Amino acid sequence: MAHIIIVGNEKGGAGKSTVSMHVATALSRMGLRVGALDLDLRQKTMARYLENRLAFCLREGFDLPTPEYRELPSVSDEDLGEGENMYDRRLSLAVSGLEETCDFILIDCPGSHTRLSQVAHSLADTLITPMNDSFIDFDLLARVDPETNKIQGPSVYSEMVWNARQLRASAGLKPIDWVVLRNRLGAQNMHNKKKIGDAMQELSKRIGFRVSPGFSERVIFRELFPRGLTLLDLKEIGVKNALNISNVAARQEVRDLMKTLDLPGVDINF
């Protein structure tokens, strides 16, 4: 069966689609068969990213490794069983269709709590949660005492992941490997950055996730989206100054992330 990777966080602007695109493309570049779903049915940033990529390849004559994207299939009311949720059926059909041909299925979730996102989390073999390095984003994981910065307990998103873990356990499935990315890190070693780091390490032990550095705040990520490119494509397409110091460092961040994920059967070779 395909290994399912969920990229989720109930807050927008955390870099989910950027992480999704780079992970999916990295796997595709390793010769692995990768399927992709975008559960943000309104904004569809991941879907747009892949659409831009296919348009760029067609326009410029490149054949870049690209995940296989699929829309959720339509389902009529007549196709539903008694008490069955339409979104559950649409997601199930999409995943089962990709499992026939894919080694990995990456699902990009919306930055809000939806039925689709909730169900998708219960499918996760690996869960990646990008989080901006601030206590605003940290609040989705845990409640913190404002005076002492001590963790008081899990918050809404952690509770949803806990419920997903319980569903998997009751179905006899293996536990979710949960990786939280400290994304958009600043270059300076500020006091607030250290406090968040300490809080993340404490919380990781209490509720069971691994902490990984994500991507630093770089203009290059915003520049790549309109052409559907990733940092792994720059050398191949011959972008001017593709290997400047900043881009080399960003490429290493992608490599470090893939190593941290430790996905089954993946040999980091880029």
Rank of each mutant, 00 (worst) to 15 (best):
S122D: 09
Y157W: 12
L127Y: 08
G153M: 13
L232T: 03
F225S: 07
L141P: 01
R53P: 00
E60I: 00
A187H: 03
N244T: 10
M1D: 03
A187C: 00
E223L: 05
M1C: 01
E100T: 09
I6Q: 07
C57L: 10
K44S: 10
D38E: 08
R168S: 09
I128K: 15
I107C: 13
R70Q: 11
L37R: 02
G265E: 11
E100S: 12
S170D: 15
I4S: 08
R206A: 14
A187N: 05
T66M: 14
E147F: 13
M258V: 01
F221C: 02
S96W: 05
I268A: 05
A250K: 01
K240W: 04
L243I: 00
K193Q: 12
L54T: 15
S112T: 14
P213K: 03
L93T: 00
G238Y: 13
T260E: 15
D133F: 06
L261E: 12
Q152F: 07
D103A: 07
A55K: 09
C109P: 02
A242W: 12
L93S: 08
D63P: 05
I207A: 06
D133K: 02
L234P: 11
V144W: 04
P73Q: 14
M46W: 06
M86K: 14
A169P: 04
V248N: 11
I245A: 15
E100L: 13
L91Q: 08
V161E: 15
A164F: 00
A2P: 15
N247V: 01
V161F: 03
A171F: 01
